[in-house]
Simulated assay, not measured.
Amino acid sequence: MAMAEHAAAAAAVSSPAVPAWTGVALSVSLVLVAVVIAWRQHLGLAREIVIASVRAGVQLLAVGAVLLFLFEHAGLPGGFAWLGVMVVIAGQVAGRRGAGLHRARWVATAAIGGAAAVTLGVLLLFGVVQSEPRVVVPVGGMVVSGSMQAAGVTLARMVAEARQQRPVIEARLALGLSGAEAFAAHRRELLRTSLMPTLDATKVVGLISLPGAMTGLILAGVSPEVAIRYQIVVMYMLVAAAVMAALGAAELGQRMLFTPAHQLR
């Protein structure tokens, strides 16, 4: 992993595969094509495409400046602090998917943070990735992103399931079952639904498209064999993080569904 990182960094400086700023500017023409298509088709999305594209560019430039500072001055503590910020932001985003659930954003943040801490901790403990900010931050960012998606889908499905099956759940509660017992069948189903996108993507990785980490390393001039090893680690850590985040969101979210007296909120 260490060799891959250093090779990628060295190759990226001189590789013609890495676009210059003029190339970045020219890529704006692709956004203009999308805007024209949306306008001609009367989709009402032309303005949204422009806003999203500008926002993405500004955010990436800002993050690039922050990362440059972290890598050169803040060290590993700064890298972990930035990951903490990522977890908080991801918790807010995923929590909005569970609108209507009591303390949904807290649930999402805790689930994402726990999944990211365990996954990244294992990788660092066994030396799979280097304990350097330029490695920890991007790898941790991928873990947080995958956890956010899994937690968000889990909470969204939980709220929908509780609303649709409210009579059934309340009937079970009336028979003397606890909240966990009354919701158990629905919990299993929503977990399956939440994890299917991650599992489907894992099954076809490399067959339909080359994943981001592998593509980036190959474009930077790294050997495909090295890039494949890196991507295998990435895919496995994303699967683990998604499962833990979904399970954490389901467990904590389920507790928020019911009052201490086992009444459905």
Rank of each mutant, 00 (worst) to 15 (best):
A2Q: 14
A9F: 13
A11E: 12
S14D: 06
S15G: 07
P16S: 08
V18L: 12
V18M: 15
G23P: 14
V24R: 04
A25D: 02
V28M: 13
I37K: 01
R40P: 00
L45P: 00
I51R: 09
V54L: 12
Q59S: 03
Q59H: 08
E72W: 08
G75K: 14
G75D: 11
V85W: 08
V87P: 09
A90R: 12
Q92N: 04
R96E: 00
R105C: 01
A108R: 14
A110W: 09
A117T: 13
V118I: 15
V118G: 05
G121H: 13
G121P: 15
L123Y: 11
L125V: 12
F126T: 04
V137M: 07
V139G: 08
V143W: 09
M148I: 08
Q149Y: 00
T154A: 01
A162E: 11
Q165M: 09
P167R: 11
V168T: 14
A171G: 13
S178Q: 05
A184N: 09
R187M: 06
R188E: 12
R188M: 06
L190E: 01
L191R: 08
M196D: 07
M196V: 08
P197W: 01
P197F: 01
P197Q: 04
L199A: 09
L207R: 02
P211I: 01
G212Q: 05
A213G: 11
M214S: 03
M214H: 01
L217V: 06
S223G: 01
E225V: 11
R229Q: 10
Y230G: 05
Q231L: 06
I232L: 10
V233T: 15
L238G: 13
A240T: 10
V243Q: 10
M244G: 06
M244K: 03
A246V: 05
L247M: 05
A261E: 12
Q263M: 10
L264K: 07
R265A: 03
